Simulated assay, not measured.
Amino acid sequence: MPEVMFAGPEGRLEGCYHHSENANAPLALVLHPHPLHGGTMNNRITYTMYRRFQEMGFSVMRFNSRGVGRSQGRYDGGIGEISDAAAALDWMQMVNPNSTELWISGYSFGAFVGMQLLMRRPEISGWISIAPPANDYDFGFLAPCPCSGLMIAGGKDTMAPEGSIRKVVEKLNTQKNVTVDYRIFDQADHIFAKQADLVADALEDHVLVRQAEFRATAQAAG
């Protein structure tokens, strides 16, 4: 699994990148949980999503945001971390100039960063948000949300309560041309200790359905 170092806004950033053997493969960027609470690119859910994208033929990256692992800089309250994610996306697009499909996937704090990035990068095709911290951050910036995606909540999650995530989903589903695939894992808490494979399966199921929709739309347009 090749390690990469790439330029971020505050210095070098450390990542793991898998380059697909498939020509012009779709791209996926996976974002880790809160760095002040032990979140790194080696987090189990982050790694599980990375592996599933890899198995699906994607070129995929996970990386440590500023101040984590060997990444330079210091934690910046989320603002700088969004810029770090944008730099990771820039690097992937530079390496894959002909790819036309791009996914953002984040867990916990990474879900917040991913959704912020979604609003800044219109080329993003779809998104995966696992346990977005809707109790701690205002997700009202998703207006309008540029595309549909998958959101997963844990029924026993006290850090990102299902009820707060449901409110975000309900608001998004009122927007034109946006449908949130919302899935609740009743027995999961915020760690998803016994549900990592279920998260990966949900990710794959959602992405395959959306990719079929992309193809149908392209055929209809052509």
Rank of each mutant, 00 (worst) to 15 (best):
residue 153 A to C: 11
residue 170 E to S: 15
residue 136 D to Q: 01
residue 154 G to W: 03
residue 147 C to W: 09
residue 153 A to W: 12
residue 139 F to N: 02
residue 165 I to K: 04
residue 148 S to P: 04
residue 159 M to F: 15
residue 146 P to Y: 11
residue 145 C to E: 08
residue 146 P to C: 06
residue 141 F to K: 00
residue 168 V to G: 11
residue 147 C to H: 05
residue 174 T to Y: 03
residue 154 G to T: 01
residue 161 P to K: 00
residue 152 I to R: 09
residue 157 D to K: 00
residue 150 L to M: 09
residue 163 G to T: 03
residue 150 L to D: 08
residue 170 E to L: 05
residue 169 V to A: 14
residue 136 D to H: 06
residue 137 Y to A: 10
residue 166 R to Q: 09
residue 150 L to T: 05
residue 165 I to P: 07
residue 146 P to T: 09
residue 175 Q to R: 02
residue 136 D to G: 07
residue 143 A to R: 07
residue 159 M to S: 09
residue 144 P to A: 14
residue 174 T to P: 10
residue 163 G to V: 02
residue 169 V to E: 13
residue 157 D to C: 07
residue 167 K to L: 14
residue 167 K to F: 15
residue 157 D to M: 08
residue 154 G to N: 03
residue 161 P to C: 02
residue 170 E to C: 06
residue 153 A to F: 02
residue 172 L to S: 07
residue 161 P to S: 08
residue 154 G to C: 05
residue 175 Q to W: 04
residue 146 P to G: 09
residue 136 D to S: 04
residue 162 E to D: 09
residue 160 A to T: 06
residue 142 L to C: 07
residue 164 S to G: 14
residue 143 A to Y: 12
residue 156 K to V: 04
residue 150 L to S: 14
residue 158 T to A: 13
residue 162 E to L: 06
residue 137 Y to D: 10
residue 173 N to P: 07
residue 173 N to H: 04
residue 170 E to H: 15
residue 163 G to F: 00
residue 167 K to H: 14
residue 172 L to D: 06
residue 165 I to F: 08
residue 155 G to H: 01
residue 164 S to M: 13
residue 145 C to R: 03
residue 139 F to P: 10
residue 140 G to W: 04
residue 141 F to M: 01
residue 145 C to D: 05
residue 139 F to Y: 07
residue 143 A to I: 11
residue 167 K to S: 04
residue 173 N to W: 06
residue 167 K to T: 02
residue 175 Q to L: 06
residue 153 A to H: 01
residue 140 G to T: 00
residue 144 P to E: 13
residue 150 L to K: 01
residue 164 S to A: 12
residue 149 G to M: 04
residue 142 L to P: 15
